[in-house]
Design a protein around this nucleic acid. Structure first.
Lengths: 144, 144
DNA sequence: CTACTATCTCTAGTAACTAGAGATACAAGG
DNA sequence: CCTTGTATCTCTAGTTACTAGAGATAGTAG
């Protein structure tokens, strides 16, 4: 093991990925197969570190596997204009905005539900009634 | 088929669940097994309709299967005080608040990334640089 | 040399469904 | 009554993004 090669455990520690997750990324082709030691242990170099850091950051930002795959392909051909990258990021932002809107409606409904339920029995609990209400008449927004 | 019995297709239409989803809920024990017609088709009654509406509403509110299972058990024993229900709903609200905070940080980062990338090539695209940045120095918040 | 930890491969499990194959049932039109 | 077309049946397998565990080998520290 030279100074620029390290084990999967080391890679895991420096990137914050778990070991099985790294093997999983290799399995699905996000991370290239590394060299092996004489004892068949994976040996990684800085290029693996960078790529895994990229993948991990994307995942933490909520990008899907397929989006990451696209982004990685783009970064592998760096001579194109980056419209495609912007497009992927924008599409993701749109998804994020939608999720936020849904969550806000949900938050409001949950808060109202919790507030409206005093010290009752389940048989006349407002939360249960609300959840059972198939007319959704109680809903402030029509988001769902 | 009497006036209070209906097919799985009918149930799907009135609740907005898809047919395979209804069968799936039965399989995992969220929905009780219905009667069958002479030709082995499922026949549902109003009690199934109510229960499925309850499940569906919970799912739309983002409750997990296990939370729904708890809630259903509670509604099956309606003589207890509803602290437990409030507790489940509150725990869920907390999750929602956390998710919202993460999404807001993400939204900010995505917007900044998209904005900072002009008409460049991928080789010096700011988005790609940001995603590759394992130091996370660019991040405004330390949420991730 | 002996522990102990890390790593290896492989399978299977998670949530919450969705999709498809191949077979049967039912409902309406001719 | 027969045909056609849709609905339903069961079963298996695929999805996303991992996680957990078994049983075997490798590497390391004392």
């Amino acid at each position: 093991m030279t100074d620029v090669e390290f084990t999967i455990g080391h890679l895991a520690k420096t990137t914050g990925c778990k070991v099985p997750t790294i093997r999983y990324y290799e399995q699905i082709g996000l991370l290239p197969t590394p060299q092996r030691s004489t004892g068949n242990h994976r040996l990684y170099g800085p290029e693996h570190l960078n790529r895994l850091a990229f993948i991990r950051h994307c995942r933490q930002l909520g990008f899907s596997q397929s989006a990451i795959r696209e982004l990685l392909e783009l970064t592998d051909n760096p001579d194109q204009p980056c419209d495609a990258v912007t497009r992927i990021a924008s599409a993701h932002l749109e998804q994020v905005n939608k999720r936020m809107a849904r969550l806000m409606a949900l938050k409001a409904e949950l808060e109202r539900m919790i507030e409206s339920c005093g010290d009752r029995k389940i048989s006349n609990c407002r939360i249960v009634e609300t959840l059972a209400d198939q007319t959704h008449e109680h809903c402030i927004s029509d988001r769902h």
